[in-house]
Write a protein that binds this DNA or RNA. Structure first.
Lengths: 214, 214
DNA sequence: TGTGAAAATGAATCGCTGTTCATTGGAGGC
DNA sequence: GCCTCCAATGAACAGCGATTCATTTTCACA
């Protein structure tokens, strides 16, 4: 949370929350045009600040993108971690992770678009990209899988890494299709309603035969 | 396969194959820098033609990207279709699809990079993007799934669409991780060796209980 | 109310690169 | 050998937009 002043944050800044407004504006604009076709001036306008102001908060356009992604991602993963603490069954934990991801992105379409279209790009081509985020999330999934293996609920012979990729990949692909093709304003339809059918397939693929799913 | 002459292709052009050389160069350069940081002049240089020549074959930079993706994709899908004709068991068909995709991208790293980093972007932001390709590939997967359901090998209650997304998503995610993180020159390691573990999970998730996998 | 420092502004700069087009070259027909 | 046609060339153009910075505004404090 850098602020223009190098010293402690001024009270003014805290209330005026320009930093967050810029991040939000960036997500909106980038979702509309894609990162490279987004003009800094449009982001500034949408945030209600001057072009130059953005450079008081961010080193450059690249860093703005990364900060926006980072910020949203950490908000998400914190929520996910908290939610998982209330669950003990590894199968239910997986179900919940799937639900949370689909819910989070399903209710923030612009963010979903930025994640699905810009993340891979950034991960590959921005040297300063924080791969940490992705690692954290994968570790979360892997830890649940391991837990399940140790409890004898998930097949012990599976590679946790491969299983984690299958799990994440399936969800990720559903989100991608949603941002690419689904017209948005079908009110009653929630992306998160797809969590169950997906998890149904994956759990069956991962579980041992002994116990049964639900 | 447009050629500079609006009339029939000249024999000269066929042998000099500039068109294909430009496509190949585009894949290489874009894999190195990402589409937006790729200069047309560098693609031209790599293809051994002048900058202006590219515009005799392609309307603009966007179209060059799309043509490169389209060309590679159709080559792939044609091979996949042919290979599947020799197989009857739907389970083995799925296994083969996974193998072919991992094999094709695992042996063409530059192409893999372009696919994993640029495809979503293009699909979302290039209005002229041919979604047809993706639809074709998904239809191929879906048709195998339906076939399996009708044969009683795959669970009939599953949504073929959701299952197809899980399948594609899992493979896609593995490829993405490979282009992002795996150092390339570990000779004996083939991306395609991951086909079995992945398909193992997904088949178990999709199959009916009656018959068993392999 | 006055003062200084930090924050904010936004017009101007400047580098970059996609695209154009006047010119060149060479192959095929006569 | 000459002529015509068109592919090919690559230097020049033009527009764009990220970034800068001289100036203005805000505000905490005395």
């Amino acid at each position: 949370m850098k602020r223009p002043s190098t010293a402690a944050a001024r009270t003014v800044n805290v209330t005026s929350d320009k930093y967050q407004r810029i991040l939000d504006a960036a997500i909106e604009v980038i979702a509309n045009h894609g990162f490279f076709h987004s003009r800094v001036s449009e982001i500034a306008e949408r945030a209600g600040v001057a072009d130059g102001t953005i450079y008081l908060y961010f080193k450059n356009k690249d860093e703005l993108l990364m900060a926006a992604i980072d910020s949203a991602f950490h908000r998400f993963i914190a929520r996910a971690r908290a939610a998982l603490q209330e669950i003990s069954d590894p199968r239910e934990k997986l179900r919940r992770i799937a639900f949370l991801q689909l819910e989070a992105l399903g209710t923030q379409r612009s963010l979903a678009i930025v994640f699905q279209t810009e993340l891979r790009h950034s991960a590959k081509f921005l040297s300063e990209f924080s791969h940490n985020m992705m690692v954290e999330y994968f570790d979360l999934i892997k830890s649940v899988l391991k837990e399940g293996q140790e409890a004898g609920v998930f097949r012990a012979e599976l590679s946790v890494t491969v299983a984690a990729h299958c799990f994440f990949g399936a969800i990720d692909e559903i989100v991608t299709t949603w941002i690419l093709y689904d017209r948005e304003l079908e009110r009653d339809y929630h992306l998160s309603s797809l969590a169950d059918p997906i998890v149904d397939i994956l759990l069956k693929g991962i579980e041992t035969g002994s116990k049964h799913g639900h």
